[in-house]
Amino acid sequence: MLSMNLDRQEIERELVERARSGDEEAFSELVRTHRAKVYGWANTIARDAFLAEDIVQDAFIRAFLHLGTLSDASRFVPWLQTIVRNQAYMKLRRGGPFAKELPFAGINSDSGYSTAGYDGDHDAMDWGNIDRILFRMSHSAAEEAQHGNDPVKGMLRKELMEQLHSLLHCLSKRERQIFEAHFFGELPPEEIAQLFDTTRANVYNLLSRSRTKVQKERIRVTIRQYVRQRAEMGQRRVHILQSPQI
């Protein structure tokens, strides 16, 4: 019994290592293994099947994106549990399944993190949009999961992962770390400044720059995906009307 547990732990540690280096198959395996458990945690807090499902989708996406910051691979399960718990409480605070469209700044102020120092509403909006795209990605994945044969495969379909990868791909390593620490880790800028041995002003600067980059990348990904979908549906590729008399 004990040795079997040890074996499983060893396999899991290996899967986490592989997933961390970007192996999607390994991450799929982790999802398969833990999905029921994660759903259980989420449902305990949410007490609503649909909301719990939402939390699960979101938690796995955040886990995938954030895997690089997990320092000890053997701590995967408790780490995942923390993410699920954060996600669940965050969603509940935001008023359940119908409040998903709240901007990220709303979460920030709810969770007690100060947004002072940002240059106003414009920034808050940007965060809101990043947040919405993540929700949108998780939702289209959820739809796929409902209609597809293999829900796990559907949820982690290649396209989604490509999207998530390419979104943050545009950042330098340091930008990405700080961006993730702020956005997915939900750390306040003071804490990030300490963590990365820099000043708060620097963190704000870097976040602002990263946000612009991610926004741009987000649009590019959207356009690429849109054009690909048109191609897949067999729609016309090139159509140029006669030059206008203007």
């Binding site: 054009v227 191609a231 159509h239 140029i240 009307l241 006669q242 206008p244 203007i246």
Partner: peptide, 18 residues
């Protein structure tokens, strides 16, 4: 001005203004 064409292969709009 007007956009009077699109090109999904090159990701371009064809347009004209004054």
């Amino acid at each position: 001005g007007l956009i009077h064409g699109y090109d999904d292969e090159q990701h371009l709009f064809h347009a004209k203004d004054v």
